[in-house]
């Protein structure tokens, strides 16, 4: 039996990833390059917020302190967030947004595939539902990365710049810690390092097709999933996200 505090921590990581990335993607609303992309971005954000409700809902239940998903999303401070640094990085241009999405989707889809066989049936259930959405996200973000990478000279340069900028934030997803070790021992979740080979296979294939050069450095910024060291960007994001709940606490909406 895994300790609830470890499980709670692990569920926050899953829910915070989708909350923060869903927020970032929703910032695009009404500003996309073409109407179909407005729809696709809103749809992606909506899926991620839906997944957040499930992960943070379960986290709150596991915590057992009477909080719910909204309390976790809207009343924790930066140091309590457990998302990867990658997802809190700013949108930049459309290319950077879709590159970030692709890098996350590739990791996320592999992780969810493994979580579908989790020994915790609640987690397996959420993963099965989310996995359907995420495999579509991955298909779309990979296609866009290929289209823009292998497009015009300008689109190619922008995509390479986005990849170079975001690559140092990829490695964190595959670094395990005590929480991960507890999950592995209980058969709840995979060892993050074990996801890397499949991830490398996907990104190598997609970047080859996109004519993009994979950066050689494996240097990885870290601190997001442990909460030790977020970027400066997260504080601004959550001050927007949480403003109403903070300004008017205790209301129902």
């Amino acid at each position: 039996m895994v300790r609830d505090d470890f499980l709670f921590e692990y569920l926050l990581r899953l829910g915070d990833n989708t909350l923060i990335l869903g927020h970032r993607v929703s910032e695009w609303c009404g500003h996309a390059p073409v109407l179909e992309e407005d729809i696709a971005l809103a749809n992606t954000a909506l899926d991620m917020i839906g997944q957040t409700q499930m992960w943070l809902g379960l986290a709150a239940e596991v915590e057992g302190k009477g909080r719910n998903a909204d309390a976790l999303a809207f009343t924790r401070d930066v140091w309590d967030f457990r998302n990867l640094l990658l997802v809190e990085m700013p949108n930049g241009d459309f290319g950077q947004t879709l590159m970030r999405q692709f890098l996350f989707d590739a990791f996320h889809s592999i992780l969810l595939g493994r979580l579908m066989t989790s020994s915790d049936t609640r987690i397996a259930g959420i993963a099965a539902k989310a996995s359907k959405e995420v495999s579509y996200h991955l298909e779309r973000s990979a296609e866009t990365v290929v289209g823009l990478g292998d497009g015009t000279e300008q689109s190619h340069e922008r995509m390479q710049a986005a990849l170079d900028y975001l690559w140092p934030y990829v490695g964190e997803a595959f670094i395990g810690d005590t929480v991960d070790a507890e999950m592995v021992a209980a058969g709840i979740a995979p060892d993050p390092a074990s996801l890397r080979a499949e991830f490398d296979e996907i990104v190598t294939r997609v970047f080859a097709e996109a004519t993009l050069k994979l950066p050689e450095s494996r240097f990885a910024h870290k601190g997001g999933k442990t909460g030790n060291f977020h970027t400066e960007h997260l504080g601004h994001l959550i001050s927007t996200l949480q403003w109403l709940q903070r300004a008017y606490p205790g209301c129902t909406w």
């Binding site: 073409v34 015009t152 689109s155």
Partner: peptide, 15 residues
Amino acid sequence: AWDDGEWVRDGLLEH
């Protein structure tokens, strides 16, 4: 939104 997206539309068409 339209002007900033021009390179995206051009890139996808070229691809």
